[in-house]
Design a protein around this nucleic acid. Structure first.
Length: 757
DNA sequence: AAATTATG
């Protein structure tokens, strides 16, 4: 028997670019290719690796075939090499595409008719011979040779950049960024390499610096210092900050520039770096302001602080602030619609018994005030409150729009409120006229917009959301500020709560967990206060284990044997939640171990290998991308279920999700799934499980071991929590509340109207 | 070190 070839091994496709179909803002490129390999002629290829290619270019693509629900079979390119067109057909395309001004398909064909496969050799070595072709005179000859020289220039720059360990893909991108400008790419790379950080996505300070030092740009040049400052500001954003205090920015930049160059410490003093920063400010590349901001030392006293910001973040923050003010002062659309206070008071009827005073207040506020916030931890009745609010509003013929920052949260919201919900991105998508579902119309008519899981709103998304709301439209933000912060910079929900004029309700009464899981809630609050959780014989356990290897082993035993034996909980009731993916006690390894024990290979369990793991009948899996076209009503990022069928004949498997959705996956689409025996805490946000096991290893690193992360993990559990691992990892996580310290000035900007000064 | 959305 021949060794089975994994079906998802990278494949190679060669062809000539016919035309571009689409290029997204983030460089994802879709194009049509005339293939010179395989049996298919016309191929659709997709990928960011394709960014910058032009019609007529010959490509060799490495990647995989995938099936797109709307556009059918297509090639997902991971890598893209430029090749010299080899056969006649390819050369015809190459010359006949718009690459050379003055040569169209007809003339290209004429040239190839004369020289055949030798065409390119002729153009390179003996261009005068082109005059033999009918229709080519000196002018066209000149153009052709010039275009050819350009091709050679590409080759030259590629060799140069790859010599500096710049990947071929990035080298192509650098070249194509400048290819259509009047500048000579090689000249830019050699003379002003730090420009690349700004112009080419994917080139950061580190790469630009490599090039710069190689071409002899002085280490203390202004360009280098400025690039380093911008890099540090950018990095701060990746860590959630909207700005950096200038003093901190200077200190970090100096560290970046002198870390492996101690000799420069004296030269790169404060004054030098401040001067470089001032220059950036002068060029409009950095905004510098002095604002009264809280000192992040726990006292929260306001101190005049000089801060630096990237201009787009400054714009987002100031615009969001002014939209918040606009909303706060607008006349609420629902105000005349119904006697809301009476309606809400009438809710004390029997059928809604259980609605607390705070829930009443939240509902009335949302109906009467243009902007309000509803917060509360898990189990405090946010869902019930929302259901009642939506019903009440709709009974009065108000138009309600529901949305959330993630697909999964939107789906959940839709289910609990019994009416359509969407991602915030879709809600605010501008009307494009020919779209079948014109989401923009929703916001044009909406009277009340409810955003669930609002703690996940980052600065940029919040700005776009607020800007899209018409005057008078009510906005209710619902969330739990103690959960993990947004991926992008900012801490919008917390900042809004710091604005006194914004009405808010905090739901404190916990309904769930009262009897059996009370210790979980109590411990969650201890963690938030920075205290160690207390053991509880029935629901909260702490198992000190010191080596990571032992932790991994114990976790598997707990899931497969100990917890089922002691608590009668089946392994399916237990969710392992890891801080990180890597290391032995991380998500990836634990998934393999748990799969091996809970669902081992066997003859009656067909399977398929994909991405280093077997997808086997019975496996627990989770979807990791929104796919509205999969299954009956779409499958969303975060949904989990189990593999209910594997068909090795038709190369597809079926997943039955916990929400009842049944979806089919061709094997080539298995990128959309991960095993879910163990998940990261981040991915568990918004879900709950009967029992949760959290392996704690200090190897996960301080960036991960945070108070909010532990809080989020613990609050996912309804009946029981097991913290297993290194005691110091638990303690350090509890002590680490740096997520709360994101630098933002949003609160200040809302409360201090510059126009009023 | 982890993670969101979306596009023909």
């Amino acid at each position: 028997m021949p060794h089975p070839v994994p079906l998802d091994a990278p494949e190679v496709v060669e062809g000539v670019v016919d035309h571009l179909l689409y290029v997204s803002y983030d460089e994802r490129t879709v194009l049509r290719l005339t293939a010179v390999t395989g049996d298919e002629e016309g191929i659709t290829a997709v990928g960011r690796a394709l960014f910058g290619v032009r019609p007529g270019e010959s490509l060799r693509l490495h990647g995989n075939w995938v099936h797109h629900p709307r556009h059918g079979r297509q090639f997902r390119a991971e890598q893209c090499e430029r090749t010299m067109p080899a056969d006649e057909r390819a050369i015809r395309f190459y010359l006949g595409s718009s690459m050379i001004r003055g040569i169209g398909p007809v003339l290209a064909s004429a040239i190839v008719d004369v020289f055949g496969e030798q065409t390119l050799k002729v153009i390179d070595a003996d261009p005068q011979r082109l005059l033999e072709v009918h229709g080519i005179g000196q002018i066209r000859l000149g153009r052709i040779t010039a275009a050819w020289q350009e091709q050679k220039a590409i080759a030259e720059i590629m060799v140069f950049l790859q010599g500096l360990q710049i990947t071929p893909a990035l080298a192509v991108k650098i070249y194509t960024t400048y290819a259509d400008t009047d500048d000579d790419p090689m000249r830019i790379v050699r003379r002003t390499p730090y420009r690349l950080c700004r112009d080419v996505r994917g080139v950061g300070f580190i790469n630009a610096d490599k090039i710069a030092l190689a071409v002899g740009i002085p280490k203390h040049s202004d360009a280098r210092l400025q690039a380093a400052l911008l890099h540090e500001l950018d990095q701060a954003g990746a860590n959630g900050h909207c700005h950096l205090p200038v003093r901190l920015l200077i200190a970090r930049t100096r560290q970046l520039l002198t870390d492996d160059d101690p000799a420069s410490v004296e030269i790169l003093d404060d004054a030098v770096l401040r001067q470089a920063l001032a220059a950036l400010h002068g060029q409009g590349e950095v905004v510098i302001e002095t604002l009264p901001l809280p000192v992040l030392d726990g006292t929260d006293a306001l101190t005049d602080t000089e801060i630096a910001m990237l201009p787009h973040r400054h714009r987002d923050e100031t615009q969001l602030a002014s939209h918040v003010r606009r909303l706060l002062t607008s006349t609420p659309a629902l105000s005349g619609l119904a006697p809301w206070a009476e309606h809400v008071a009438a809710l004390t009827g029997a059928e809604t018994a259980g609605l607390t005073d705070e829930q009443h207040k939240a509902i009335l506020t949302a109906l009467t005030r243009p902007l309000s916030i509803l917060t509360g931890g898990p189990g405090c009745g946010k869902t019930h409150t929302l259901q009642t609010l939506v019903d009440l509003a709709e009974q009065a013929d108000a138009v309600v729009a529901l949305a959330a920052p993630t697909g999964k949260a939107a789906k959940r919201l839709e289910e609990t409120c019994g009416q359509p919900a969407m991602t915030v991105h879709r809600l605010i998508r501008p009307a494009d006229g020919d779209s079948l579902f014109d989401h923009a119309s929703v916001l044009e008519t909406a009277d009340l917009v409810i955003i669930d899981e609002a703690s996940m709103l980052d600065l940029a998304l919040a700005r776009r959301l607020f800007a899209a709301l018409r005057d008078g439209c009510h906005l209710l933000l619902v969330g739990d500020t103690d959960q993990l912060p947004s991926v992008g910079p900012g801490r919008v929900l917390r900042d809004l709560l710091d604005v006194e004029g914004i009405p808010r309700t905090r739901l404190t009464k916990v309904f769930r967990q009262l009897d059996e899981g009370a210790a979980i809630t109590l411990n969650a609050h201890r963690i938030l206060r920075g205290e160690r959780p207390r053991e509880d014989p029935k629901v909260f356990w702490n198992r000190p284990v010191s080596s990571a290897e032992d932790i991994a082993e114990r976790v598997v035993d707990l899931v497969c044997e100990l917890m089922p034996k002691h608590f009668g909980a089946g392994p399916e009731d237990i969710q392992v939640l890891c801080p990180g993916k890597k290391n032995v006690a991380g998500m990836t390894d634990l998934n393999l171990r748990l799969q091996q024990r809970l669902n081992p290979p066997s003859d009656d369990r067909p399977q398929h290998y994909h991405g280093g793991a077997a997808f086997r009948l019975g496996d627990r899996v989770q979807q990791v991308r929104n796919n509205p076209h999969r299954g009956e009503t779409g499958v969303f990022n975060g949904s989990s279920g189990s593999i209910s069928a594997v068909d090795t004949e038709t190369h597809q498997l079926t997943v039955t999700f916990h929400d009842g959705e049944v979806a089919t996956y061709p094997f080539i689409d298995l990128d959309e799934l991960v095993h879910a025996y163990a998940l990261t805490v981040h991915r568990s946000q918004g879900s709950e499980y009967p029992y949760v096991i959290v392996p704690m290893v200090s190897a996960a690193g301080m960036m991960l071991l945070q108070r909010n992360l532990l809080y989020t993990a613990v609050t996912r559990a309804r009946h029981g929590v097991m913290l297993i691992g290194q005691t110091d990892a638990v303690e350090r996580a509890i002590a680490n509340n740096r997520t709360q310290r994101r630098n933002t000035a949003l609160t200040h900007r809302i409360t201090h109207d510059p126009a009023a000064v």
